[in-house]
Amino acid sequence: MLARRRGPGVTPPPILEARDLVKRFPAGGGLGLGGRTVHALNGVSLAIAAGETLAVVGESGCGKTTLAHCLTGLTTPSAGRLLLDGEDAAAMLRREPMRFRRRVQIVFQDPYASLNPRRRVADTVGDALRIHRLCPRRARRDRVAALIAEVGLGEEHLDRFPHELSGGQRQRVAIARALAVEPAVVVCDEPVSALDVSIQAQVINLLRDLQARRSVGYLFISHNLALVRHIARRIAVMYLGEVVETGTTAELRRRLLHPYSQALFAAAPEIGRPPGTARPPLSGDVPSPIDMPRGCPFHTRCPHARARCAAEAPALRPVDGRMVRCHFAEELSA
């Protein structure tokens, strides 16, 4: 609503903002022997406003799950700042953790793992209400029933255990749990990739309906590019702990500038694409975040790499209506 008053094209103030988030952790079990370090996030900046969806796409090892954990206060970043409503989130998590927890919630990928197998639906969702003291104990069950109804389940599911529910139903329970505290931002970490195709659409529609009703902001992590284009207003493409390209979905759909984004979107199989028109796939694997390549992290697989790419890491800079991290973005766009 704020956005509307400020007029079109003006970004609403962010609720959750990451500034140059860095996360490193010792490789190999946590003892830190050998002194090797995993560079999971190398300076990620992004912001989520009320009622909007920002999608983060990337492959395994790009740091998107670590990003989700940093944004939800599940891990402490090694450097950089996280701001919630303009306040320093690290300080808030120390002093008033419950204030942060009520504003930011998370939905995980695997609804089989994210629900406690020994707790009934009413307990799992009720936990959220109880620890935040959101309603008196007597009213709790009714409140849970209302939440469960909001995600499309019925009263009869209240006393079920997770193993008595289907995957889609479990994910609905996980969404109800996250929404119970009425958060402003929900980080959705691959929320439908563990579900069957026919169920994915149900859950995506549910997330969109809830967003429309509660104007909650989503950070939507996914590797399904078609889905991302469908649900997100803005997209950030990550590679090896960095954002390599970010902009509005409309801009990115029109054209991709970073060679990695191009390869990523081209690699996704697409129904209806004429046969033989797919680009040749990228060669090689994603380098290990332990032995980070020098210079541009993508130069080891980039079809356009030149000498400069191996020597000098490019900065994220504005080109053609979006931000790109590539020395030669202008040339490649020409």
Binding site: L74, P97, R102, Q105, I106, A113, S114, I131
Partner: peptide, 17 residues
Amino acid sequence: EREYVRACRALGMSNLE
């Protein structure tokens, strides 16, 4: 390391609980 524990921590549940 299971995600249900992460979800509880994200809700702000105490370690004891």
